[in-house]
Design a protein around this nucleic acid. Structure first.
Lengths: 230, 230
DNA sequence: CCCCGCGCAAGAGCGGTGCTCTCGTTTGTG
DNA sequence: CACAAACGAGAGCACCGCTCTTGCGCGGGG
C-alpha cells in the first residue's frame, strides 16, 4: 500500500487540479485573463467556489500555474520547429522557430497576453515562472551556438561601454558564444516578441495587412542582425 | 450668450471630468489598470459612485479616455526629444527619441501596460484610439523622412513577395520614403516596443542588468537597420 | 425678476467577484 | 477500528460595475 498509500487521494487530487486548470484555460482562451473567474470555473466543474481553495490558494496562484503552462507550451512549439528542420541552414531554422512562435501566439492570444502582456494581478510571482520562461530563449541560443560551431556566425563589434555587461550576460547565458552575439541575441529575443505582440494585440490593425511575408522578412533581418548569414 | 450659453454648466462639467481622469490616472499609476475601481475614484472625489456615470458611461470608457491620454503623453515626449536635438545627425536623434520612449515607459509603467500590454477589458474600442496611437510613430517617420531628404538614408532590398505590401504601406504611411524603408520602419517600431516592454514588464529581470547602455546599443542597431548611417 | 426645468448627486439595490470560516462527511492509515 | 487528515458545501463579508429612482439646486428663458 505504500506506493499507493495516499495514491488514490493523490491521484484524485492531481486529476481535480488538472480539471481546474483545464477549465480555467478554456475560460482564459474565451474571455481573457481579466475575466477569468474562480466562481465560473467552479460552476463549470459543479463545485462550490470555496472548494477550489483546496487546490489553489488564490486566483493569482491559479494564474501563475497557467502562466507556467503557457511558457511550457510556447517552448515546446519552438523546440518542435527547431527540431523539424534539423538539417537546414541556420537562418532557415531561425526563421522557422520565429514563425512557430508567431503561430503559437496567434493561436493562443490570451496565453500570449498572460506571459508577455502586462502583469495581470497587482504583481505576480516571477520566481516560479523564471525557469519556464527561459525555455523559449534557450532554443534561439542553442540554434546560434550550433551555427557558431559550424563557423556560420559573423562577428561584429560592441561599444566599449557595453563590453562588461556583454561579458557578464555571455557568462550567464551562453559561455560558448561571443559576448556581442549574446547581446544581439537578447535584443533580438525582445524584438521578436515586439513584432509578435504588436500583431497579436492589434497594433498592426490597418497598418500591416500581409503579415506573414512581413514577419518572415523581419525574422530574417533579426537573424542577420545576430550574425547568422546562411 | 451663445458662446457661454451653457458655458457655466459646461465648464463645470469639463472640470469634473478632468478631476475624474486625474484621480483615475493616480489610481492607475498606483494599482494598475486591473485594480482601477470606479468606486474608489468616486470615494477619492467625495462623490457617489453612481455620479460618475454622468461623465463616463462605463468603466471601459474611462479607461479608453486614459488610453488616449497616455498615447498623447508618450507622443509628446517623443516629439520633445526629437525637437530637442534638431541639429544633430539622424542616428543621434533617432536614439534620443528611442531613449525618450524608454524613459516615458519606465516612468509610467502602468500607462505603458495600458497601451502596449494586453487589452484590459473584454475588448476595448480601438477606433477612438487609432489617431492618438499614430502620434509616436509619426515622430520616427518624420525623422527618417528628413534624413532621406538630406541623403543620409541607405537603401536596401526587399524580397519580391513583400514588394506589393511594402508599396501599399508606403502609400499609406509615408509616400516620400522608399517602400523598403517604410517596411523597416514599421518593424523597427514594433521591435523598439518589444525592447521597452520587456524591460518595463520585467522580462529582463536577472538577464540584462546594465540596461541603459544595452538599450542605447539596441536603438543604434535599429537605426542602422532602417538605413540611417550617421 | 422669477419660476420652470434640466442637470446633477445621492441612495438603494441587483448580480457578480475573491476569499474566509465553519461544519459535516469521506477516506486512508497507524 | 478509531482517529485524523483531507475534502466539499454553504453562509457570509467586503468589494465591484452598473441601474433606477428620488429630490435638490442652479442656470437661463419668459
Amino acid at each position: 500500500m505504500s506506493s499507493t498509500a495516499h495514491g488514490a487521494r493523490a491521484r484524485a487530487r492531481i486529476e481535480v487540479t488538472a480539471a481546474i486548470k483545464d477549465a480555467a484555460r478554456r475560460q482564459l482562451a474565451e474571455e481573457g485573463a481579466a475575466r477569468l473567474s474562480l466562481r465560473a470555473v467552479a460552476r463549470e466543474l459543479g463545485l462550490a467556489s470555496s472548494a477550489l481553495y483546496r487546490y489553489f490558494p488564490s486566483r493569482d496562484e491559479l494564474l501563475t500555474a497557467l502562466i507556467i503552462d503557457a511558457y511550457d507550451s510556447l517552448g515546446a512549439a519552438a523546440e518542435a520547429a527547431r527540431d523539424a528542420e534539423a538539417g537546414a541552414p541556420p537562418v532557415a531554422r531561425w526563421v522557422a522557430v520565429c514563425e512557430a512562435v508567431r503561430r503559437w501566439a496567434l493561436a493562443h492570444p490570451h496565453e500570449c497576453a498572460l506571459i508577455y502582456g502586462s502583469p495581470v494581478p497587482g504583481y505576480s510571482a516571477p520566481q516560479d515562472t523564471v525557469p519556464a520562461a527561459a525555455r523559449v530563449g534557450r532554443v534561439f541560443f542553442a540554434l546560434t551556438a550550433e551555427a557558431h560551431r559550424d563557423g556560420a556566425l559573423a562577428r561584429s563589434d560592441l561599444p566599449a561601454e557595453l563590453a562588461p555587461e556583454a561579458a557578464r550576460m555571455a557568462a550567464d547565458l551562453a559561455p560558448d558564444l561571443p559576448p556581442e552575439t549574446v547581446t544581439a541575441l537578447v535584443a533580438a529575443w525582445a524584438e521578436l516578441f515586439g513584432l509578435v505582440c504588436f500583431e497579436v494585440f492589434g497594433q498592426f490593425h490597418r497598418v500591416v495587412e500581409e503579415r506573414e511575408p512581413f514577419f518572415r522578412h523581419a525574422a530574417e533581418r533579426l537573424a542577420h542582425g545576430v550574425g547568422l548569414r546562411r
